[in-house]
């Protein structure tokens, strides 16, 4: 297994090199400019090469069972230096952040947007109990734990949250690196979008805040500080927002909307 790990490390160096040489690509679609960072190329290339059809020869060694396990088990540890970096961005801004602390708390309620925007659409296209699991939150560990405790993962609600989890894991960071610049072009303030980046999933937060940094480099420190603070706040308050607000709101909306449909 140790030998194969070497393949993984060398492979990752090659992917980093390729992604960095492709570099930051700004794609104009109408009046929107979507900026694709090397990190997007890195995740797209590794996902494509990971498909079963490519797993021959050298790729079979790179994408061995042990290596994929290593990557998923220790991804969190690999991310730690990034989280440590956020500390250095927040520290000089701490006074400023505390002075507008109420805005940070206020925007946490925006996380209810998953229910408000998601639930009507889910019911409209014909989902039923799956919608409960799929719209309670962004489908990360917190929602997964809550739904599995209350309904089990084999239930319709469980299928909903699991599907969302899979989607978020695979496409979350790509999605947010496209969404963030679009909203910037729509006229949102970069500070507001930085705060919104703390959605509760680290990879989504990274994708969103990095893209904002690439678009507005002179605000780098503020963007990273706000995103990291909001992310920490969501980690602390997320469970409360979900249980005390999202769950009752979802129940209320579900019963209203489901009844109207009949």
């Amino acid at each position: 297994m140790k030998g194969k790990l070497l393949y993984l490390i060398i492979f990752s160096l090659v992917i980093v090199t390729i992604s960095e040489f492709i570099g930051f690509q700004a794609i104009k679609i109408g009046s929107f400019t979507i900026g694709l960072l090397p990190l997007v190329f890195a995740i797209v290339i590794t996902m494509i090469l990971g498909m079963q059809t490519f797993r021959k020869g050298i790729f079979k060694k790179v994408y061995s069972k042990g290596n994929i396990e290593f990557a998923s088990k220790y991804l969190i540890i690999i991310m730690l230096p990034l989280m440590a970096r956020y500390g250095a961005d927040v520290a000089p801004k701490l006074k400023e952040i505390i002075s507008i602390g109420w805005i940070f708390l206020f925007q946490e309620f925006g996380n209810l947007g998953t229910v408000i925007f998601g639930l009507p659409i889910a019911l409209l296209i014909g989902l039923k109990r799956e919608a409960i699991g799929a719209t309670l939150g962004i489908g990360r560990e917190g929602e997964l734990a809550y739904i599995s405790e209350k309904y089990t993962l084999e239930s319709a609600e469980g299928r909903g949250v699991l599907s969302l989890y899979i989607f978020g894991t695979l496409f979350g960071s790509i999605f947010f690196s496209i969404l963030a610049p679009i909203l910037l072009d729509l006229g949102f303030r970069v500070e507001a979008l930085a705060m919104a980046s703390g959605v509760g999933s680290s990879s989504m937060m990274v994708a969103s805040s990095s893209t904002l940094v690439a678009r507005v480099p002179e605000m780098e420190q503020t963007i990273l500080a706000y995103a990291a603070t909001s992310q920490m706040l969501t980690s602390f308050l997320g469970t409360f927002t979900m249980v005390l607000l999202a769950v009752p709101l979802q129940k209320f909306m579900y019963s209203r909307l489901a009844r109207r449909k009949k």
């Binding site: 969404l179 705060m195 959605v199």
Partner: peptide
């Protein structure tokens, strides 16, 4: 649904922050 859910939480927070 996933796209609406992700967009929902992001726009929700961004709108409130912008108002703030």
């Amino acid at each position: 649904v996933a796209m609406f859910v992700f967009t929902g939480t992001y726009i929700g927070s961004a709108l409130l922050a912008q108002m703030g």
